[in-house]
Amino acid sequence: MMDVATPFLNALTVASQTELAYSAQDHAQLNAVLHRILQAAHAAWPSIALADDRFLSYVAERVIPSPSVIPFPDLMQRLEQLHTSDLFLCCACADGNDRAIAQLQSTTFPMLDRALARLGIDPQRRYEVLGELIPHLFVADDRKPRIASYRGKGALQGWLRAVAVRHALASVPQLQEDDQALAVQPGTFDLEAQYLKTQYGPLFETAFADALRSLSVRQRNLLRRHLFDGLRIDDLALIHHVHRATVARWIERAREDLARYVYQQLSKQLGLQQKELQSLLRAIRSHIDLSLSKHLR
């Protein structure tokens, strides 16, 4: 079996800027793993020509995230987990192989289009985003083409989808979001909320912004995601690795903290009667979602 491990380790040494300690046995094991990787990649993309040493050094540059030292067993584990066949395709794309670019487009763009569609992006804009993605991914500007920053930790499809979504979101104007936020109206006409708004408008706004700052990072993100991004309690539970009941409690708590904070601020400054204060608190609570959507961008 040809020795591909030595050039691979040389490339790795350059990338990690450290000499790796390993035995002859390790070397043989690495060589075997690399051969397996090569075999799988060629089988996955039979029509794409890419030199083995070029591909393996491409993998070597990506298997360790940044200049650092890792023990040999960890390296092996990482290699096993790496999506190396995806990296093979990306390497060819990064090298400007037209056939590889065409393959990547044809195998992944349908999925990207569906993903953007599900985010409510209209067909015209989807087309544009995908079109803009092509030069973005494959054309080197001053640095490397974007496709080269895929490191193979997750599946290429997922990474591409994230890139596409980021690109699509970046082109949704901020203004648009403002408009949407302002356009959110309470479901029913709320006389108290209306009163609050007209009576204490600017004062309320200031108090609310302060209140928001008084929350924790987690509370702020929870509220934004829930009220603005449209994530459900289940989604939030997933991100935070907790039970959905916990997330529900967190959100409830965050709202209440906000309302209390605003209430304290306003009552301090306004010197209202007890009865008026009760009414104010009710108004604040009913108004809070509306204001949140304005502030939590």
Binding site: W45, M111, L119, R161
Partner: peptide, 21 residues
């Protein structure tokens, strides 16, 4: 972006391995 990725994950389009050639 993160929220969007969560939304997409929820609606079933989990990342699947890239289909080969």
């Amino acid at each position: 972006l993160l929220s969007a990725l969560v939304l997409l994950g929820r609606s079933g389009e989990r990342t699947t391995p890239t289909p080969s050639a």
